[in-house]
């Protein structure tokens, strides 16, 4: 038996490992190498400059401005998305008042679940263009509604006070649906009798959410947190399509800086790779921190 085992394992493992090496590991490694050069991207000439790119980066005001915006995204997007996702999922699985005793969702749960999931079906590009029109200062849906009730109509994406928050709102909007479904599915897995027991003990819905649902969903929330944190460090597609980082860099993000440095207004691939390397370590540390901070004992239903 043992005779043919290794060739078999190797032949199964090799193709995926090679693919992973070529398409995942090698670009990462190359980015590290390129970040220590002054490569300009359109010739084979790249002179090593050591850590000069990272030194420049330390003093680059535009990079810091972009990082500041990513920090805000990191602080706000996961919290808001998870809170909204939990709220909607709870309403859909146990918000109903029907029959008082049983645990059921609000009326029309199936429809809501479908509607919430819509943004997830659209590509990010379509979402960005859709919202760009909604935020249109003159003929947009939003300002149309505001004017109809006699409120002032700002220029949204054209105003540095709002542009960034407009993009942030779209980010939350486009993500919530997925987490409603994710949390909803996880809630279905929680044994009904636990809820019935605490309801007999007279627990309110808030107490149920706080003391039963969230602790039992903790693993899922943790995963959601990591996904959203990583998404918050990106945000590139929405920003590029909706505001291009403007007005006056007010909605810039680090991914946008990297793209602009390599493909946009300059061809500094070495410097852009340095920005990429910084992004890599930031994302990695955020993921590790999120995992550490959220570590709790796993609960298994018997």
């Amino acid at each position: 038996m043992r005779h043919g085992r290794y060739p078999l394992i190797v032949s199964f493992l090799l193709p995926p490992l090679v693919l992973y090496g070529v398409f995942v590991l090698s670009p990462y490694l190359q980015a590290f190498q390129i970040s220590t050069t002054d490569w300009l991207g359109y010739s084979a000439q790249a002179d090593p400059v050591g850590l000069a790119n990272f030194q420049t980066l330390l003093h680059d005001g535009y990079v810091w401005n972009a990082l500041k915006n990513n920090a805000i995204l990191l602080a706000v997007v996961p919290v808001l998305t998870i809170a909204l996702g939990l709220f909607f999922a709870t309403m859909l699985t146990m918000g109903g008042r029907r029959g008082r005793a049983g645990v059921s969702g609000v009326r029309g749960t199936a429809v809501y679940r479908l509607v919430y999931f819509f943004p997830q079906v659209l590509s990010v590009v379509i979402i960005a263009l859709l919202w760009k029109e909604i935020y249109h200062p003159n003929s947009g849906l939003l300002n149309g509604a505001l004017r109809a009730v006699g409120l002032p109509a700002p220029t949204w994406l054209g105003d540095p006070r709002f542009a960034f928050w407009c993009v942030l709102a779209v980010m939350v909007w486009s993500n919530v649906g997925f987490y409603v479904v994710l949390f909803g599915a996880a809630m279905q897995a929680i044994p009904r009798d636990i809820y019935e027991a605490v309801m007999l003990d007279g627990a309110s819905r808030t107490v149920m959410l706080r003391k039963i649902t969230i602790p039992l969903l903790w693993d899922t929330i943790q995963v959601a947190w990591i996904y959203l944190a990583i998404a918050a460090l990106d945000g590139f597609i929405l920003v590029q399509l909706m505001t291009n980082g403007g007005p006056n860099f007010s909605s810039d993000v680090i991914g946008m800086r990297m793209y602009d440095t390599a493909f946009g207004s300059e061809t500094k691939f070495g410097y852009a790779s340095a920005i990429g390397v910084v992004m890599f370590f930031l994302t990695l540390s955020v993921a590790v921190l999120a995992l550490r901070a959220a570590r709790r004992d796993r609960i298994e239903y018997s």
Binding site: Y6, P7, V10, L14, L17, V18, G21, V22, S26, Q30, Q33, I34, T37, W39, S43, A44, Q45, A46
Partner: peptide, 30 residues
Amino acid sequence: DILRRSAAAGLLATPAAGLLAGCATSGGDD
């Protein structure tokens, strides 16, 4: 076993060497 394993490692290592030669900045003979 040792022989087999080192052969497998060699298989893995060969494309890796090729990779390094095919780096983004190393193409194109000047």
